[in-house]
Design a protein around this nucleic acid. Structure first.
Lengths: 211, 211, 211, 211
DNA sequence: AATGAATGAGTGTTCATTCAT
DNA sequence: GATGAATGAACACTCATTCAT
């Protein structure tokens, strides 16, 4: 390895580290102050970068918001998709998905709060294309697991919007309360109730009741 | 009625009208442009009021946002509470509540969008106290209807957070998609599926299955 | 006295009372908040009057400031002039004047602070004419007492500006410190030192030293 | 000097120049229009800086006022302190101080006017800490010169507040009149009278009269 | 890649003042 | 004389963004 390439690697690494620090600082600021109230100066100060540096790595405040959203979304969706493929049994998969959803939120409360708050926010629309792409491949992965099970009658044949609403709606609602600090029930207990409900609402006719 | 009191009444009425117009204009602006992007000048121009008048009636932009939130929340909760007391049968009540939720959203899409967007937003925290009070009396009204039915075993005995999540979570999720224009299913059809799911998730052991 | 004139008197009295209350409130506000920071709303609220009423009695904020200044100035100058004529002995008169100056400030600290702060302030220029007139007759009264004593050589023949500076300059300075809460010496003790100094600085050649 | 450091120096110098120009412009505006009537736009236009630049260097209007006050105060106090140490003879020192006071005011009428107007003004309180520190070291310098002379009986042993009032009170008063354009006496002549008076008022018993 | 001084359009807000009742 | 809703010009200040070094 030549000294030059070594330096290059270091530079690239330092650059990446900068980027990471800025995103980290941004999430902290957004969490503490809210997106609108957070100024670039806040992010700059907390990340230890200079104004110009922030603009070098990202293009502006909205792009930071977008990059953060995409990163969070990918992590969340990757977690759910990865969980799903571990399960063969339909009921087990649905239940696990609900549990994993709650688990991810508990593990990443700041990101979860951010994703909830920023859902479809104008400020994030800069990353629209990437978000769509990310969503597309996530939905595809889910569909791959669901399709044969719907075909076999193990899951109800419902439009996607309703399917989603029944699968994760209650969990989303509970999650929102929990993030706001207004949930009183323990998450693990809640997970069981919510998993049962999701499965009950979605299971197909081919599944004998009480499974 | 003396002339003096008549004049006073007229004045007061015109004043109230002003207030109403400002709120109306604000909602339109927030819907079209988003809260942050809406400037006071936008609201002023659209409502036909002067800058000073806006500040005379409200204290600032945030307070307009707060007043709007409270008004919308009250209307929504009043609609649901009013629906509930019309029903004696437990299943009927639960189903009607879900339907009414969807109905209100369809009837007031701007307010619904606003309530969703502003949920716990910092911009609304000025009205925190009023919101809490409004919520309190709503929850009380609901509890009054639920309590005896839970006691009779017609509804599951669940913590409030989970109860709420199962009752309205899926509808909230569907509603959100619909507001964003991403729902494909017809609302009336969705209402039946969601009402069924809510009832299934909440009915108690004392209710024979298939009711 | 007819009932009508009685009512008229009451009205006039109530009106005067209003005026007094407004001035009083204004002085309190100016003292607490400073002139610039005081808004008409502050004065209105503290005086219990309505916006329109304030404008009926005075013409605006500056006029209130002016009226207050004139009133304070008159009271101060009247006190000094009245003191002077009580004294026949030159040394006694000069000393008494210094003492009276300090006395008035201690008795009316708010007014004193206001007069110091507003000295030649633009905000007071509305009452310029009245101030000039008030000053003129005060200076005249003083001159009447001084002239013969200067002629007799009991007081130095100095230009007015220097005479004033030596007579009240030290007292003004001390007074300013006292008003700001930065004077440590007891006012009565200070009065003696300052009175001595004034007399020493102003006494004419005709007066045997040590008087 | 490396190119980099050269560039840095230039940048820093230009930055300092900016700062200076803004302060200069502010003083001119405050003198002409008064503090309250001066808008940031006035300062901005006269200094040739942009709005943002003004806020980059200072934090706002009050901080400009504060910085200006501190700078003027330092210059004034430095001039007096420097004068004092030139003199060994007590009478000469006291007289020189009075003359220097008047001299500084005549040399810097704008600053003098500003210092008089802003004395303890709320608008300047942002720089309170710096003002106190500046005052402290000035008073210390003065005390160093005075203390032994008081000990030797060449100066009266008086509390600081009275000492100050007798030393500079008359000059302050005269200065105020002069600044307002109401003094008629020539400053040089006045200086002699005021210097004599100060010395007469302050000299101790150990000094033979007529010195 | 980093820096940070400079930019300036845009915003929420204030507040003295008016005037119909 | 009293009231207070309405007015709107004026202001201080913010902050995303640029760019020379």
């Amino acid at each position: 390895m030549t000294p030059a390439s070594g330096a290059g690697t270091n530079r690239r690494e330092r650059s990446r580290e900068r980027r990471r620090r800025i995103l980290e600082a941004a999430l902290e600021c957004f969490t503490t102050l809210g997106f609108t109230a957070t100024t670039l100066e806040d992010i700059r100060a907390r990340s230890g970068a200079s104004t110009g540096s922030v603009y070098h790595h990202f293009g502006g405040k909205e792009q930071i918001a977008g990059a953060l959203y995409v990163e969070g979304l990918r992590d969340y969706q990757a977690a759910l998709a990865a969980e799903l493929v571990l399960h063969d049994a339909t009921a087990g998969g649905v239940r696990a998905l609900v549990r994993r959803h709650l688990g991810w939120v508990v593990e990443h409360p700041d990101w979860a709060r951010y994703l909830i708050r920023m859902r479809r926010a104008e400020s994030v629309s800069a990353a629209e294309a990437e978000i769509r792409e990310t969503n597309r491949s996530f939905v595809e992965a889910i569909r791959l697991w669901l399709a044969p099970r719907v075909a076999r009658g193990e899951l109800r044949a419902l439009p996607v919007d309703l399917f989603l609403a029944l699968l994760l709606g209650p969990s989303q609602e509970f999650t929102r309360l929990w993030i706001e600090g207004r949930a009183r029930t323990d998450v693990a207990e809640a997970a069981e109730v919510l998993a049962d409900a999701a499965w009950m609402a979605l299971r197909g006719d081919a599944v004998p009741p009480g499974t």
